[in-house]
Amino acid sequence: MKIAVLGTGEVGRALAPALLNLHHAVSVGTRDPEETFHSNETFRELLNQYPGIRLASFAEALRGADIVVNALYGPACVEILSQLSAALDSRIIIDISSPFNGRIEGAILNPVNTDSLGEQVQRALPNVRVVKTLNTMAAVVMTEPGIVGTADHSVFLSGNSADAKETVTELLYSLGWSDIVDLGPISTSRASEMLLRMWIDLYKALGTDLFGFRVVRPAKSDPHTLSVP
């Protein structure tokens, strides 16, 4: 597939080479490719290591893409994506954005509880198929779940399109994920986005970002298993 990764931050730098190694055609979109190449030494080193990754403007990266990864800075992503609405029409967007402004000390989640960034992206782009996922872990864990224990921790999906979620599920399997939990429509991204507060506090408590969340289920034969109509 042709995959456009929007954003050159930590998430984009983790996903782009991982997707390239899975034999996808990967373009990374940024506002100004020349400025990024000359000023972002970390990303320049990544391009030297993985010459198959194409650095391009947002519009160029999106051209012909089957899947778009929103790895943009959360507080700015809805505005940026809205400006690209024509190029994004009918695409699958994997939304990894975070409702947290890490540049402000003491920042809180915004939006939270009654809305989510996943829903805001979907409302801003009604003709695209947004799938929220990979937003409950560190960037390095997104592409290498086995770096955490036995890799049996959980990754969550939220989205309104069953077909889009099926496509994203296959991509997650190829990245090494095995426990993929479909939470339901895009409104359920409120829940996974709110896990960020727990993630931050766990990171501080554990002193590492190499951890994940695991959903432990009762065995089907367990007599205490509840039947939900």
Rank of each mutant, 00 (worst) to 15 (best):
S82H: 13
A18V: 01
I186A: 08
V141I: 15
T136M: 05
L81V: 14
G106K: 03
A4G: 12
T30Q: 06
A162D: 15
A138W: 10
L172N: 11
T133E: 06
A205H: 11
L6Q: 13
V140M: 10
E35C: 05
L196E: 13
D222T: 07
T42S: 10
V28K: 02
D179L: 07
V228T: 15
R214A: 04
D222F: 14
N160F: 02
D201S: 11
V148A: 05
L171E: 01
T225G: 00
L6V: 14
P51R: 02
L22E: 04
E170Y: 00
S97N: 12
A205D: 12
V131I: 08
S227C: 08
L157I: 05
K132L: 10
A139K: 13
T167N: 02
G146A: 00
A71M: 06
N101W: 06
H23Q: 10
I67F: 04
N110V: 08
I147N: 00
L15E: 03
V68R: 04
T225F: 09
Y73R: 06
A107R: 11
I108Y: 08
V140Q: 12
W177N: 07
K2G: 00
Y173C: 05
F213A: 06
T225V: 06
L171D: 02
T167R: 09
P33F: 02
S221E: 12
S27M: 04
G146E: 00
H24L: 02
Y50K: 00
G74K: 08
N70F: 10
N40K: 07
F37Q: 05
A76K: 14
E105K: 15
